Amino acid sequence: MKPLLSSVKTRTGLGVLLLFAVIAVIGPWIAPHSPSAMSPDILQPPSARHLLGTTQSGQDVFSQLLVGTRGVLVVGFLSAVIATVLSCVVGITSGYLGGLADETLSATGNIFLVLPGLPLIIIIASLLPESGNLVVAAVIGLTGWAWGARVLRAQTLSLRRRDYVTAARAIGEPTWRVIVVEILPNLSAVIISSFVGTVINAVLSVITLSFIGVVDLSEWNWGTILFWAQSNQALAQNAWWWFVPAGLCIALLGTALALVNFGIDELVNPRLRIPHATVSRGQRRRLPAPARRRTYMRVGFTAVLPDTAVPRPPDAPASAPPQPSAADFVPLGSPAAVKELT
């Protein structure tokens, strides 16, 4: 299996995430000004004194951006942890136990699955007396676990029929040990991919809630910056430095999470691993053009061999039959294959 960190996309995404994590930790300490402090410098463009300019109240945009990174990441990852734990408990348990437990848990998941997520979060957050980052993270996590539970249930239904699971049950292993030791490790890639997807949805949700002014606006995040920029008509005043940096940070964080998700998909998807498992990149460059094209042809999960003969083993006798080559195989979809089928 191809290592996760061998993908350039995954390394790039993890590098950007690490950068944002460092900013979230040290951001309030290295901020040159207090994010809420007002000054006489009103709507000033970026300068040496204010790296990203100031707002209509003289607040430093760069300080708001540094301090607001922590709120976005805390809500995103905390809500993803809550949703992932709930999806694992509900999905794996219902898929393994079956019967009445499966029907009950599946019905509960289906109810949450058909509920409109963002409107429900808006209603719950607006009804709460205090809607800080922790409360918003809990609300997003409690309403965003259903889809992950459905995917894990489907995977568990497939794994519960495997031989090693049947053997563990036959020797008297308790249910919790079969789930934790035998089934859960085989679902790790799916769980990680679901976690990353939940982080993306949670980040977009908390920024949306802040942008429409539902949550507590005294806690800074990127959505709060956009809310005040929109309320004070920053676009009409050509104050691009007020909202463009926050928008770029949102796009960069979403891109980094998407790159990590793509890398996980390449790791768990057999179809995406076939070109790497068939022949190395250096060997593929030395092959002729037709062979390079046939390297990517597949029959199900099996790659078609290139036009290179398989070498004879050193210890094979002289009378041994010759090893098959790619000429003995008919590529799928070729006229010869169609002729043989008809």
Rank of each mutant, 00 (worst) to 15 (best):
I140Q: 03
L157F: 06
G132C: 09
L142C: 14
S158K: 12
G148V: 00
W145S: 00
A146K: 01
I140M: 05
V139G: 02
V139K: 01
T143Q: 05
W145G: 01
Y164F: 15
D163K: 03
R153T: 05
V135H: 09
R153G: 00
V165S: 05
T143Y: 13
L159N: 02
L157W: 01
L134V: 13
R161T: 08
V135P: 07
R153N: 10
R153F: 10
I140Y: 02
A137I: 01
V165D: 05
L159G: 14
A149Q: 11
L157S: 06
V136P: 04
A146F: 08
T156M: 09
V135G: 04
V135L: 10
L159S: 05
S158P: 07
G132Y: 02
A138H: 09
T166Y: 14
Q155N: 15
A149H: 07
W147R: 08
Q155V: 03
T156Q: 03
N133H: 14
Y164T: 04
V151W: 09
W145N: 02
T156H: 05
R150P: 05
T166Q: 12
V139E: 05
A137D: 01
N133R: 12
G141T: 02
R162K: 08
R160Q: 07
S158L: 08
A137V: 06
R160K: 09
A138K: 08
V139S: 06
L159E: 04
L134K: 09
L152A: 11
W145Q: 00
A146Y: 10
L159W: 00
G141Y: 04
G141I: 05
T156V: 12
R161H: 06
T143N: 15
Y164V: 04
L142F: 15
V136G: 08
V139I: 13
A146L: 06
R161L: 11
V165Y: 13
G148R: 03
V151F: 12
A149C: 11
W147G: 02
V135M: 12
Y164K: 15
L157Q: 11
G132E: 05
A154E: 15
R161F: 08
A154G: 15
Q155K: 15
R161G: 11
V151Q: 14
R161V: 07
N133Y: 08
V136T: 13
T156L: 03
W145M: 00
D163L: 02
R161K: 12
R161C: 03
R161E: 15
T166R: 12
R150W: 01
D163Y: 00
G141H: 04
G144I: 04
V139P: 07
Q155M: 08
L142R: 14
G144E: 04
L159T: 06
L157N: 11
R162Q: 05
L157E: 14
V136K: 10
T166H: 11
L142K: 07
L152G: 08
G132W: 12
T143K: 12
V151I: 12
L157C: 14
V165F: 10
R162V: 04
A149P: 03
L152M: 04
G141S: 06
G141A: 13
L157Y: 15
W147L: 01
G141R: 06
T166A: 15
V165N: 03
T156K: 14
T156Y: 08
V135W: 12
A137S: 07
R153C: 10
R150G: 13
Y164I: 14
